[in-house]
């Protein structure tokens, strides 16, 4: 009897957990499904066809997006920007966060709070000074100028997050490495970074998404079409007055895919169960 009651409780607990998770999951997946559904329709049917699954699949929108000559260029540009900015941030921010968390030097707190405070002044106010600055540095309409700016944008948040994780982490392995004669840089690379992998995965996704979806700063600092990121193409699909919704949705779906794939690739690093020692040697 008692066992039955216990089991019933367990089952109902499991059921309610799944009900909650399922409900939330449904609202999350619905927009993606809706986007996909619309991108298989034509401009005539998208507003009139009320069926949940479109009556006729129409692949023309995807073909239209993919054969758009500039889409390829924009896509490549976004890949370049995202890869550069994310790698730069991971290296620079983890170095800084490691130092803030583990090492001692004068003015440490000052510098740390300086980074944190920088997050709080909203950027919309700064486009004129920023442009003037980039112009003085002779970096207008160059990839490197845009990459440096975007790196700077993501830096503060990444340092804060990484420092939190480093603070929380056990120092045993680092101590062992130090006793083995490993230098500070060596410990950072061989011990601290692999241990902070979940946090780094979060930072990679956060910054990748940030760069991938950015287009205002890109248009402030870049001029040439061949340097523009992917979001610019999506802006072009949304005409000033007329919007070709199915093509826009196809474009948005294609644009969202790489980030979702990146998330899938990263999330297994968030999960424990990997042997940490593998890269330490």
């Amino acid at each position: 009897m008692a066992i039955n009651k216990y089991r019933a409780m367990k089952v109902s607990k499991g059921f309610s957990i799944h009900l909650l998770l399922g409900l939330v999951a449904f609202t999350c997946i619905f927009p993606l499904f809706w986007m996909l559904r619309c991108s298989f329709m034509t401009l005539e049917t998208v507003f009139t066809d009320k069926s949940i699954i479109p009556t006729a699949f129409h692949f023309g929108n995807f073909i239209k997006v993919l054969t758009e000559e500039k889409f390829g260029i924009y896509f490549m540009n976004s890949v370049i920007y995202t890869a550069s900015v994310v790698s730069a941030i991971v290296i620079i921010a983890s170095l800084a966060a490691y130092s803030f968390s583990r090492l001692r030097f004068p003015g440490k707190n000052f510098f740390f709070y300086m980074f944190v405070a920088a997050m709080m002044i909203p950027l919309p106010g700064s486009f004129v000074p920023l442009y003037v600055l980039i112009n003085k540095l002779n970096l207008v309409n160059t990839r490197i100028g845009y990459i440096l700016c975007m790196t700077n944008v993501g830096l503060s948040m990444s340092i804060l997050l990484l420092k939190t994780f480093f603070d929380k982490m056990n120092t045993d392995l680092e101590d062992a490495a130090r006793i083995d004669g490993c230098g500070k840089l060596g410990i950072w690379w061989h011990v601290a970074l692999p241990l902070a992998r979940p946090a780094i995965a979060v930072i990679v996704i956060f910054n990748a998404l940030n760069v991938w979806n950015e287009f205002i700063l890109a248009q402030l600092l870049l001029t040439d079409t061949r340097l523009m990121p992917l979001q610019k193409a999506l802006m072009e699909f949304q005409g000033a007055h007329s919007v070709d919704y199915p093509v826009l949705m196809a474009g948005l779906t294609l644009a969202a895919m790489p980030i979702i794939l990146l998330y899938l690739a990263m999330q297994k690093h968030i999960v424990k169960g990997f042997s940490y020692g593998a890269t330490a040697g």
Partner: peptide, 24 residues
């Protein structure tokens, strides 16, 4: 970790090439 590091550095390298080519 090694794998990610190598993939990342490879991407970096490609990106840097592009960056400097277009820098002119």
């Amino acid at each position: 970790m090694k794998k990610i590091a190598s993939i990342l550095s490879f991407l970096c390298l490609i990106a840097l090439c592009f960056v400097f080519v277009s820098c002119s």
